[in-house]
């Protein structure tokens, strides 16, 4: 302990990102469908049932309200909603092939600043292909979870206030980690074993501290909410999918807008494409 860098590391490690609770309310939800008006109303009712804690008059767009992406964006601009509820492959048959979100949703997520809920695709009568209950088990996913208060605040807002389970998940990408370790193993000045254990511990410790502070604060403001932490090393996509499946998540909340990149980050996009039967909230 004799250099500025050593002490700066100690002090940097002593700062922790603390979760700050900020209640979020939705007053102007908008349901976007490509169904006829009757089926669209039915689909909206499904949405209302699922998001029972969302106030405000629900607005609905049906097939005749828009056709192109431009028309959709114009409609959204006119209505200025604070929450959009929709599904993949609007005005397209491509929903049968689960390899994209469809052009409308792709653009919508990038253009809009407000949260977008991606629901399972409905059948012709506007009924989702599996039962839609209240969001009791809400799972929060992000590669950089520490510091993303908004993500958790949105999840808390949409989680069943009486019997909700909030799953906070973080997966450190093992492949990326191994790449850096391989580089470190070729640098004689750095002890590889020490680097491996200390970096691994530090990466998980930061998230762990943040999630602990989240659990402590939520225990005060939402005492009926059960908070479960999942912190792992592994392949993010596989691990998140496994947690969603194992815990039967009703809603998955993930970060769609990254400060450093305009498009959705790779893990969020992959999950949005893959998790077709679980509602997603993209913040």
């Amino acid at each position: 302990m004799s250099s500025v860098d050593q002490f700066a590391s100690v002090f940097n490690a002593a700062t922790k990102k603390v979760f700050q609770y900020k209640p979020i309310g939705f007053n102007k939800p908008l349901v976007i469908t490509d169904l006829d008006s009757e089926a669209a109303v039915h689909y909206t009712e499904t949405g209302k049932q699922f998001f029972s804690m969302v106030d405000g008059p629900w607005d609905t767009l049906c097939a005749s309200d828009f056709k192109t992406v431009k028309e959709l964006l114009d409609q959204v601009e006119r209505r200025k909603p604070d929450l959009i509820v929709t599904y993949r492959h609007l005005h397209s048959e491509a929903w049968r092939w689960p390899h994209s979100l469809g052009e409308h949703l792709d653009v919508l997520i990038q253009v809009t600043d407000f949260p977008v809920v991606v629901m399972p695709h409905p059948d012709r009568e506007g009924v989702p292909d599996q039962s839609m209950q209240a969001a009791r088990r809400v799972m929060v996913i992000n590669d950089h979870l520490a510091g993303e208060d908004a993500l958790i605040n949105h999840a808390v807002c949409l989680c069943d206030p009486e019997a909700g389970h909030l799953h906070l998940t973080h997966v450190e990408d093992q492949i990326v980690f191994e790449r850096y370790m391989e580089a470190i193993s070729r640098i004689p000045e750095i002890d590889t074993d020490t680097a491996r254990s200390t970096i691994q511990a530090q990466l998980l410790a930061e998230v762990s501290k943040y999630l602990e502070s989240t659990a402590d604060i939520l225990a005060e403001v939402r005492p009926n909410l059960e908070v479960v932490q999942h912190i792992n090393h592994g392949r993010p996509l596989d691990t998140y999918r496994k947690i969603v499946k194992d815990h039967q998540a009703d809603l998955v909340v993930l970060l769609g807008h990254d400060k450093d990149q305009l498009a959705m980050n790779s893990t969020a996009y992959s999950l949005a494409v893959e998790l077709r039967t679980t509602p997603l909230l993209i913040v």
């Binding site: 004799s2 500025v4 860098d5 700062t15």
Partner: peptide
């Protein structure tokens, strides 16, 4: 020097 290193590094971080 030790005093400067300790307080200086905290100063930078803070």
């Amino acid at each position: 020097v030790t005093a400067m290193i300790i307080v200086g590094s905290l100063t930078i971080v803070a």
